[in-house]
C-alpha cells in the first residue's frame, strides 16, 4: 500500500494525488488527513487531483467524507484540478459530490479558502 504525502503550507494542508489509489490507500489517506488537521490546526485542506485519471464511486465518496470530516474539525476542503473527462464520467455515474467545494486549479483553490475564511471571520 502506498501512502499519499500531505504537505503543510501556512494553515493549509495540501494533498496532491499522483498515484493510482487502491481502496486501502484511500482509507489511509482519510485517516491521515483527519489526524493531520487536528495536530496542525489547519483551517483548510486542498486535494489536488490534476494527475488523477479516474474517480470512481469509492474515491468520490472519499472526497465527501473528507469534506464533512474536516468541516467538523473547523477546516474547509476544496478539491482542485478535476479533468473534464473525469467530471463527465462522474456525472454519468450519478455522483454529485454533495458538500464538496471544487476549484479549477490549485491557485483558485487557495483563493477560495481565503475567501471562505474572510467571509467567516
Amino acid at each position: 500500500m502506498e501512502r499519499v504525502p500531505i504537505l503543510k503550507l501556512g494553515d493549509i494542508l495540501i494533498v496532491s494525488i499522483q498515484i493510482d489509489l487502491d481502496d486501502q490507500s484511500v482509507l489511509a489517506l482519510q485517516e491521515d488527513l483527519a489526524d493531520m488537521v487536528v495536530s496542525s490546526g489547519a483551517r483548510g485542506v486542498i486535494i489536488d487531483i490534476t494527475a488523477v485519471e479516474i474517480v470512481d464511486s469509492f474515491i468520490g465518496r472519499m472526497f465527501s467524507t473528507i469534506a464533512a470530516m474536516t468541516r467538523m474539525l473547523d477546516a474547509e476542503t476544496v478539491v482542485v484540478g478535476m479533468r473534464p473527462a473525469v467530471a463527465i464520467t462522474l456525472v454519468e455515474l450519478g455522483l454529485s459530490l454533495g458538500g464538496v467545494r471544487t476549484a479549477l486549479n490549485l491557485e483558485k483553490g487557495v483563493a477560495m479558502l481565503e475567501h471562505v475564511r474572510g467571509a467567516a471571520g
Binding site: 478539491v79 482542485v80 478535476m82 473534464p84 467530471a87 463527465i88 462522474l90 456525472v91 454519468e92 454529485s96 459530490l97 467545494r101 471544487t102 476549484a103 479549477l104 483558485k108 483553490g109
Partner: peptide, 12 residues
C-alpha cells in the same frame, strides 16, 4: 445539463 453539472464539479 450534464455539461453544466460537470463544469460545476470542476469548479466552474
Amino acid at each position: 445539463l450534464k455539461t453544466v453539472v460537470a463544469a460545476r464539479l470542476m469548479g466552474a
